[in-house]
Design a protein around this nucleic acid. Structure first.
Lengths: 163, 163
DNA sequence: CGGAATGGCATGAAAACCCATTGTATCCCG
DNA sequence: CGGGATACAATGGGTTTTCATGCCATTCCG
């Protein structure tokens, strides 16, 4: 019960005037090795001011995790409610979007708003999933390890942007 | 749950103008015995001014360790944050790069910067993983055993470089 | 017909690939 | 045991491919 290919690495890409952004090739290659899809699912990250993103293979895994958890707690009075909540968050609170032949997605306005994504999108591999951040918000996040912030500063400088 | 083949030995290789380095053949052979991949993952070493490197098999091991730890503490509020941090450091703070048919990698600029690698790359086997150093920084490292420094001095002299 | 969304093309930079050369350790045969 | 031949490793250079991204054409809907 684990996905074979993992998301790793980081990249900083531009969001154009239409809200389009290239999904880094090294992330797309993981998606396409996990399955034959060319879509990603976006959700607000549960603990950070950022977006969580994944592919259909992980969505299926997440679904079965929720089902298994529910079956385990059977008989518990609160469990049914907990299940309904998890399930809605996992599916209703997400948007699935395709990327085109050149690897670009259009950030849906709601997600762009939830993740507070401006004109720069920072992609971070996180194993089974990846994340999309506004780099400025990551640098301002107290719970973020300093090593991680260093990497983001490097990515910004690489583009000639002063932090 | 341990890896069968271990990285051992040392070598000093040149970094060319394009940032390319040959990964020593004795390290590559371990990677290829552990799995069928021809890539290595680079990260800043957590305590030394150097890079830590490993293969996909070790990355998968690291991932499952993190997942197991998290599932054991489920429900704990602090555990969730700890998990997020570990996960990002393990995956977002790393870069996976392939080596070509002649066994060379290109050091990504960010990693070359983080590891302060100049025109010489010192490879050190470290069991489950291996390390890549700027030899000068190793010789200047107080926490490094003298016997280890002797080996590095030997590798430098071997190349006709005076320390 | 205007405006916005979508898909396709063009570009410049960077990365991956291929081939050639050198050096060194190994092997084989005299 | 010596010496040449051989195989593989490391490195240098050049060429092709891919990527991110800007730009334009087309479509779809008001």
């Amino acid at each position: 019960m684990a996905l074979e290919h993992l998301f790793q690495g980081s990249a900083l890409n531009a969001v154009d005037a239409k809200g389009r952004v290239s999904v880094p090739a090294f992330l797309r290659s993981v998606i396409e090795r996990r399955g034959d899809a060319r879509t990603i699912t976006l959700a607000k990250h549960e603990s950070f001011p950022a977006l969580s993103a994944y592919d259909p293979a992980y969505a299926a895994l997440k679904h079965s995790k929720i089902e298994r958890l529910f079956e385990k707690q059977e008989g518990d009075a609160d469990a049914a409610l907990d299940y309904q909540q998890r399930n809605l968050l996992a599916f209703a609170a997400t948007e699935e979007i395709p990327y085109d032949s050149s690897g670009r997605i259009v950030l849906p306005p709601m997600m762009r708003n939830k993740g507070r994504i401006d004109d720069l999108a920072l992609f971070l591999g996180a194993g089974e999933t990846f994340q999309i951040w506004n780099p400025k918000l990551l640098l301002a996040e107290p719970a973020m390890p300093e090593d991680m912030k260093d990497i983001v500063r490097f990515r910004l400088e690489e583009r000639g942007i002063k932090a």
